[in-house]
Design a protein around this nucleic acid. Structure first.
Length: 804
DNA sequence: TCTCACACCTTTGAAGTGG
DNA sequence: CCACTTCAAAGGTGTGAGA
């Protein structure tokens, strides 16, 4: 959703203050070397038009290099050279073109070319780290046709949707890699019209059923289903990927009529448990690719060999990626190479700081089809079979192994990587095929000189980063969003000038895991603008929110520069107060008094004076107070939701076992969000929590209040992260807005679209957006302008209009 | 479908300046 | 020597004409 100027880029690195002699960012977009190791992977990706959250599962077959394999040599530059502050740009050129001339530490590692053999037998790592078995590696095309390796597998599925104590039991009785978070589900596949066609996932002959991408899998109604909660009557769209080892499960909540959040993604986890092939199975969970203001693009990745090892990965600018993904991301490829936009950057946490790792970005092909864009219907269609690359085009950092400490302290950036359509691409480039789909994948592997030892290996796939390679943009909306969000394309914007951004960066959450090598030192300054270090240039140019900008440009209107009007601010304040009042009244709890909502948001640091810095500090303080209060309120609300959900579920199923145990229910919910570790429990932020439909449904408002009035005492407030990870909050969350909109008619239209994905509501889809019901965008409140002299909370008349 | 020249813009680092 | 400013070159971007 935003791009940062060079100075602002350092903000990202405030997350992990760089250790001495380290560069500000871990730029891995340098010249490439061949693979050290080949990995066969199957990848689940979302469809560009998908509207729900995404499950990614990755199966890996790791090939081992055998003794005697020739060694490839790479040169590793010294840290000092990499981190020279005034050589950044030149270093980039050097890294791309003059790498061979650079003298540095020489690291050797095994290299083995799969393409040389085409079909060969290699050893395969099994679940047990100390054993291996023979496995046949076949080319991608062959594997696609012989996609029967998924047979004889159960699909374990966990959905956090409220009350699933059954699922907890099931989970405990099985060997899920996430204890207490999965259930065994027999899937029934049905087309979208609701007709149900049973599918035996254990039957090889059912592959054809999977090949229908628009199939739905439904929880069966028979008694064999371990879960028969009607509240859990969720539909799953099951899509099979050609590679065969991957299953794409897209939850579609079909029971939530009246749900204020529409298709608010629910927390889901799926993984495949191989039974015959002993494939190492890895799974990820994903918050969903909905561009919310929460924490999209955060994955928990298990070590392929040791499932107790966990890596947390966050996609930088995930919300921007999601914005593109919702439209069908296109990436330009040219002869000379074109950068990816958004740039591929990730934050990693959980690596052993004392080990060396190799980081690679490769581009998987979800399918080998060629696509064509239909302008009239604004959609991509299959136009035939395309080229299947024998190996996924990959990009390996030339800098050789990097310590886990360095990786975790910095943003792993591939921003200088270039995509080309020339087969014999130069170093620093990746050769792709036009009009075909690709899915970037980050592979982090422990570096070891000996190939006989098992190494940590993480494969990270953010589904929202998939794209179609093109030589010219096909979708005008993509062009619009690129122009709106890419600073280099500012010349094509309406104003022709840089517009100061009114949107803060989407909040990130501190990556943390039991093995985090990060001390997480100054949590007050991470993930936000360091007040002591305002950008040296004239402004922090946080680029235009993709969604809003797209909305504007779609309407082909030249909208006033998103300045917050007095009414908007008052409405925002009113909504917050209404929400808080309601919360107090309904729950009968004495909540802390909500602080004032910050009026202003800093957009310019030009001619900044010390007294204005003080004002800003006060401003941030107030924001933090508000966020703290808001988070506490949300916690209470969520706990109340659990109670309501449980009660409603009980009445529906009319079960004799309708006695609820609040503690166990909380445990069910928390189990999916608390990561056990030898050092305690790691809590995933509350934005991962499932959102109940009932509490926000007007239809069940009476029920809600009834149950809320009988809600049991709640445990003390839990403030896992949010108390320390304040971002300048300038808007209410969707939950908060939804609540308030019920009480304040007329506000929803104005505000909801800022949080909702265009895919969440057909009314907000690009083609449906010509509706005049959304009259004007609401911008964020602004911080005290450096040129203004008023207090941060003073009258909005101090707001200055940014020039168009 | 692809290439290329182009205008417009950002980024970058060297040079200049002053304390 | 350091911090800061200025400036010009390099490079990134989508456009639109043409192949």
């Amino acid at each position: 959703m935003l791009s940062l100027r060079a100075q602002a880029f350092s903000v990202e690195n405030l997350i992990r203050p760089s250790p001495p002699n380290s560069c500000s960012a871990l730029d891995l977009t340098s010249s490439s070397v061949d693979h050290q190791e080949h990995t066969i992977s199957a990848t689940a990706t979302t469809e560009p038009s998908s509207t729900s959250s995404t499950i990614t599962a990755v199966s890996n077959v790791k090939t081992r290099s055998e003794p005697g394999v020739p060694l490839a040599t790479v040169h590793r530059s010294s840290q000092q050279e990499r981190g020279h502050p005034k050589k950044r740009r030149r270093a980039s050129i050097d890294s791309a073109e003059g790498q061979v001339e650079r003298e540095g530490e020489e690291v050797k590692f095994p290299r083995k070319s799969l393409s040389e053999h085409g079909r060969q037998s290699v050893s395969m790592v099994e679940n047990k780290p100390d054993c291996s078995s023979e496995y046949e590696v076949v080319p991608e095309t062959t594997r696609a046709k012989n996609a029967n390796t998924s047979s004889s597998r159960d699909i374990h599925l966990a959905m956090k949707s409220g009350n699933d104590s059954d699922s907890e039991e099931n989970a405990r009785s099985s060997d899920s890699p996430i204890p207490g978070s999965k259930i065994l589900v027999n899937l029934t596949v049905a087309p979208r019209d609701g007709e149900t066609t049973p599918i035996d996932l254990n039957n090889n002959n059912n592959n054809n059923n999977y090949n229908n991408s628009n199939k739905l899998a439904k929880y069966p109604d028979d008694d064999s289903a371990p879960m028969r909660d009607e509240n859990f009557n969720s539909f799953l769209k099951v899509k099979r990927i050609d590679h065969g080892d991957l299953l794409f499960l897209e939850p579609h909540l079909d029971h939530n009529e009246g749900l204020a959040f529409g298709n608010q993604p629910q927390f889901c986890v799926a993984y495949r448990q191989p039974q015959k092939t002993s494939l190492v199975t890895q799974f990820c969970f994903c918050h969903g690719d909905v561009p919310c203001r929460g924490h999209p693009g955060i994955l928990s990745v298990r070590d392929c060999h040791d499932h107790s090892r966990e890596l947390l990965a966050e996609l930088v600018h995930a919300d921007l990626w999601s914005s593109f993904h919702s439209l069908g991301t296109e990436m330009i490829i040219t002869k000379s190479g074109r950068r990816m936009f958004p740039a591929f950057k990730v934050r990693l946490s959980g690596l052993d700081p004392n080990k060396l790792y190799t980081v690679k970005l490769d581009f998987l092909q979800p399918d080998s089809r060629k696509y064509r864009y239909i302008y009239h219907s604004s959609q991509w269609v299959v136009s035939g079979s395309g080229d299947t690359l024998q190996e996924p085009p990959s990009y390996v950092t030339q800098e050789g192994p990097i310590s886990g400490k360095d990786i975790c302290y910095q943003v792993v950036s591939f921003e200088r990587l270039k995509l080309t359509n020339v087969e014999s691409c130069r170093p620093g480039q990746v050769s792709l095929v036009s009009m075909q789909k690709f899915q970037p994948r980050v592979v982090v592997e422990e570096h070891a000189l000996s190939s006989n030892v098992l190494r940590e290996r993480f494969e990270i796939i953010f589904p929202q980063t998939s794209f179609i390679a093109v030589t010219a943009y096909q979708n005008q909306q993509i062009t619009t969003l690129k122009i709106a969000s890419n600073p280099f394309a500012k010349g094509f914007r309406d104003s022709g000038k840089s517009r100061q951004m009114l949107y803060p960066p989407s909040p990130s959450f501190p990556l943390s895991s039991p093995w985090s090598c990060l001390p997480m030192p100054n949590v007050h300054n991470i993930f936000g603008f360091d007040q002591k270090r305002p950008p040296s240039k004239d402004s922090v140019d946080l680029d235009i929110c993709g969604l809003e900008n797209l909305y504007k440009l779609k309407k082909l209107q030249r909208v006033d520069n998103s300045l917050m009007k007095l009414e908007d601010e008052r409405a925002l304040r009113g909504k917050a107060n209404s929400y808080l009042t309601n919360l107090n009244n309904v729950h009968g709890r004495n909540l802390p008094t909500a602080p004032d909502i910050p009026t202003l948001y800093p957009v310019s640091y030009k001619q900044q004076k010390s007294e204005q810095l003080t004002q800003q500090a006060q401003f941030y303080q107030r924001q933090q107070l508000y966020v703290s209060y808001h988070n506490q309120a949300q916690q209470i609300l969520q706990q109340q939701q659990q109670y309501v959900d449980k009660t409603l579920m009980t009445s529906v199923v009319n079960s004799s076992n309708a006695q609820f145990n609040e503690g166990s229910n909380t445990a069910v919910c928390n189990s999916a969000f608390e990561r056990p570790s030898p050092f305690g429990t790691f809590r995933v932020p509350p934005l991962f929590y499932p959102i109940s439909s009932h509490l926000y449904s007007q239809d069940t408002s009476n029920v809600k209040e009834t149950h809320l009035s009988r809600a049991p005492d709640l445990p003390p407030l839990l403030l896992p992260f949010q108390a320390h990870t304040y971002q300048p909050v300038t808007r209410l969350s969707p939950q908060l807005e939804s609540i308030c909109d019920d009480r304040i008619p007329g506000l929803q239209q104005e505000t909801s679209r800022h949080f909702d994905s265009p895919r969440q509501s057909p009314d907000r889809s690009p083609r449906a957006d010509s509706s005049p019901k959304v009259a004007k965008p609401i911008s964020l409140p602004r911080a005290p302008s450096v040129t203004s002299s008023g207090s941060p909370n003073s009258s909005p008349t101090q707001l200055s209009h940014s020039p168009l």
